[in-house]
Every structure is written in C-alpha cells, then in structure tokens.
C-alpha cells in the first residue's frame, strides 16, 4: 500500500470486517459495524494484534489505544477518516 495515497474507507472497512470475521469464525456479512469489539467476541489482545496488522497492511500508524476509545468498526473507521488516514 502506498504511503502517499490514503486507502479508501470502503477498502479498510472490508479488510477489518474480513479480519474480524476470521477471528470470531463468522461470515463477513454477519459482522456488525456498530457493536463494540468485545461484544462481538474480539477481546483486547485481539484488538491490539489487529491494530499492528493494520499498520503493516495499510502503511499508516495508529495510536494503540484508539480502537479502545472508538471501540466499534464504524467508530474506528470514523477516527481514521478524521485523522486523514483513510479517504472517504
């Protein structure tokens, strides 16, 4: 992923959904966007692991505590968009 071009929100969201679906063994279309990570079965360790993988996958840096402050997929994507790390 290029450092110069922010990934689109849709691409990052699809990636996060697929990642979480694999973690909790659920079909991607069944992963809710507005439910907190821990409520859908993603514990804090998994969130930290996912954050590290996201950095490698998309080439941006995320505050490790961000997914705990914005603890849903939609909330995390909103925060990344607000920070200019993903494009609308």
């Amino acid at each position: 992923m290029s450092d110069d071009i922010a990934a689109s929100r849709r691409i990052v969201q699809d990636w996060v959904v697929r990642y979480i679906a694999a973690v909790i063994d659920l079909a991607p279309e069944a992963v809710p966007l507005d439910t907190e990570f821990r409520e859908i079965g993603v514990d804090s360790a998994e969130v930290v692991i996912m954050t590290g993988v996201m950095e490698e996958e998309f080439g941006f840096e995320i505050d490790a505590e961000l997914p705990f402050r914005r603890a849903t997929i939609a909330g995390l994507l909103d925060a990344l968009q607000e920070a200019g790390l993903v494009a609308a």
Binding site: Y19, A45, G52, V53, E55, E56, A64, F68
Partner: peptide, 20 residues
C-alpha cells in the same frame, strides 16, 4: 503494553505473513 503489543503484532505479521 498496548503499544508494545501492537509493535509485536506488526513485526510478527511482517515476518510470517500471518496475524498472531
């Protein structure tokens, strides 16, 4: 711990090509 864990995860993915 979270930052250290995140860096550990990133390194693991970079080296193995798989999430932990």
């Amino acid at each position: 711990g979270m930052e250290a864990g995140k860096r550990l995860s990133a390194e693991y993915y970079r080296i193995t090509g798989r999430p932990i």
